[in-house]
Amino acid sequence: MKKQRRKFWTPLRGTVIALLIIAAVAAAIAWYLQGKNVAVFNPQGTIASDEFNLIKFTLMLSAMVVIPVYIMLFAIAFRYRESNHEKKKVKYTPDAPDMRWLEVIWWAIPIMIIGLLAVVTWVSTHQLDPYRAIDSNVKPLRVQVVVLQWKWLFIYPDYHVASVNQLKLPAETPVNFAITADGPMSTFWIPNLGSQIYAMPGMTSQLSLMADHAGSYPGYNTNINGTGYSDMYFKAEALPTQQDFDQWAQSVTAKPDHKVLDWASYTELARPSRTRDVTYYGLKDDNLYTEVVNKFMEAKTPAVSTNEEGNK
């Protein structure tokens, strides 16, 4: 006669083991992430902070649906599994009519939750609109960004300087970005500070960010723009005070043999090349940014952009 084996996987055991595994994985992740910059969850600027709060709120709302779903799924699956029917007095109603009141509940509750989220979405989308300037008493800094293949050009028109592959900004000061691309569609993103926005040739995108305090924050391009796409990594250096920033801007042009950015040197810079070098320029042509945008608007002949890194 076959020996009756006690089943190992009881619902209680299964739930406990599953929760233990989840806890262990969570602990492992937390340990691994120590000291690392989980940028989106580590806001260092006002925009990023607001967005992080939104994430927390939305996750909480979602949990209100998801957790009951998981509990119900496993509870129902376990209770009504075939082998359970023989053992316990589990109801089996193959032709039961649909329970209309249940359907009302699970249409109504998601509708209410989504309704709430919709209102929050409307308000927050307007508040965090990239076209909207940041509320502050401090005079904003103007920065013009030209996304090149495959490097970043930052122009500070009011300070007559420019930097490549490094963004300098004063902390606690709103920065109003005007962003374009001289090349394929790209994206400008500093996750510690906030929103990303597309950079498009012949067009200007707007964005406002503000760093809470001094620090060095990584910046990325998220939209593929050619072979050297993965090289497009820059650092946003937030300096502690406005004076620090002024000092830096002056130091660029103070050196007698400093590089100069005008249309000619810009054209050279804009040629496709992969470089992570940080360079500073004195800005000769204050209208450079506008000229770059207009380059694509001029009719006569198609804008030729040689792709040095030809495919294959």
């Binding site: 989106v40 939305t58 979602s62 989220l117 929050v120 979405t121 989308t125 994206t187 929103s195 990303q196």
Partner: peptide, 17 residues
């Protein structure tokens, strides 16, 4: 859940791509 998260535009600004 991650879809609903990204459906909120300001959240998507930090997640897109």
């Amino acid at each position: 859940v991650t879809g609903v998260l990204q459906a909120v535009p300001p959240i998507d600004f930090q997640i897109h791509n």
